[in-house]
């Protein structure tokens, strides 16, 4: 199966990142200047335990293309 991607389409990806590990890791990626796609928006959470399914549903409801939970 192939997915046709329209030219100019920019996905919206939300990352919910735990402040103590994944968020710090994202900082470390920055410190090492590791390039990644600019479509990624990181929302800092105090812990991945904070993640409420409600937030994920809300994001999809508002038209987000992907959600990554990391912690």
């Amino acid at each position: 199966m192939s997915i046709d991607i329209q030219a100019g389409w920019e996905p919206k990806i939300i990352v919910f990142a735990c402040n103590w590990c994944s968020y710090a890791a994202a900082d470390l990626a920055g410190l090492n200047h590791l390039e990644y796609a600019a479509d990624i928006r990181i929302i800092r959470t105090p812990c991945s335990g904070r993640m409420d399914p409600m937030l994920v549903l809300r994001a999809f409801n508002r038209g987000v293309d992907g959600v990554l939970l990391s912690g």
Binding site: I43, A59, V64
Partner: peptide, 18 residues
């Protein structure tokens, strides 16, 4: 609720992003 990372704050962030 969690002070500083409250439900309405995180929802507002998600909404603002979208």
């Amino acid at each position: 609720n969690l002070k500083g990372f409250s439900n309405d704050q995180l929802v507002a962030e998600v909404d603002a992003l979208c």
